[in-house]
Design a binder for these strands. Sequence first.
DNA 1: AAATTCTCCTGAAGGC
DNA 2: TGCCTTCAGGAGAATT
Length: 270
Amino acid sequence: MPELPEVETTRRGIEPALRGRRVKQVVVRERRLRWPVPETLDSLLAGRRVGAVERRGKYLVLRTTNGALIVHLGMSGSLRMVPAGSAPGPHDHVDLVLGRRALRYRDPRRFGCLLWAAGDPLEHPLLRGLGVEPLEPEFDGALLHARSRGRRLAVKAFIMDASVVVGVGNIYASESLFSAGIHPQRPAGRISRERYGRLAVAIRRVLQDAIDAGGTTLRDFTGAGGEPGWFSRELRVYGREREPCVRCGAAIRRRVIGQRSSFYCPRCQR
DNA sequence: AAATTCTCCTGAAGGC
DNA sequence: TGCCTTCAGGAGAATT
């Protein structure tokens, strides 16, 4: 499932093949994604040159001179370069054809989206209210501490709130809280500034490590290769219910918080 | 206002 | 072996 590191790895993988290239044609085979792919996408993009390929949270933004394409990979989405005209698989919903190659969007569960922003894409309704980027300097413990005052929801739900900080998905939320020694269900407003400092460091570290790991598989985005090695990440608590904690040996527990599975060590995390 | 629940969809995993 | 059921999950929308 694409989390921020996977989205960033995707961005780095496709950017060299897109930047400065002209879109020849947009082929939409299935427009029923989270929101319908705009009917006008081909007329908007055909003949346009792609500028910067940016990431905001888990959204990708492909800028052109007359607007921007906003892409979200949802749960199961992927983008990769393929030879133009190559046979699409069952869930290959959209191609952006650029000469001899094409950017292919695949999304079996169709939780993702491709949308058009005519103006500033950062002012698009989906991006406008997003919180701070976790890898930018302004993200720190002081920010988390300030934003959490008076809030009683579980800290895990709090750090997964995209209006606070973007890109902290379910897996990395569990991993970060383990790193920082904070119980996922502790009320967000009852955590000290000092502990939030440790949490901010943990979040940044876990995301950056995953991006660094993803960097080694960049070539897979433009070649014919198989699945990038994203899944070989070392997860210390996620998916390890009843297995021993790597730090203290206690059995890892699973609990549903805000409809999401959360994994934690009952001894190390308070 | 804040917090919780619902919703989209399909592949994978588990049960019998 | 194979069919059927259950579940996970990003994040906006709806509801409490």
